[in-house]
Amino acid sequence: MTDAKIIAVKLSAAHEGDAELIVDIRYSNGGVTQVPLDRYASEALMTACTADTADDLIGHGWEKVRRALQVSYSRF
């Protein structure tokens, strides 16, 4: 299992005109990927990481991002 972690967060403008959160995740081999999170996924991730602000997400593992995305996907 990889120990990929969030190394950066930034705000972006989604196609639909909403703000979205982009998290950069660095893999153990050095590779970096960007994952966009909508409002629902972002809120779930903030809760999972007990974060008060987006910068508190840095250092948390990728599994929390996956679970947060699932919250967004499964809300209906």
Partner: peptide, 22 residues
């Protein structure tokens, strides 16, 4: 791309502002 929001729906635009986001 523009971002639009109201305060009736939480916007991530405020996610870096601890008090606002809370």
């Amino acid at each position: 791309i523009d971002i639009s929001f109201t305060f009736s729906v939480p916007s991530l635009l405020f996610i870096r502002l601890r008090t606002w986001y809370a």
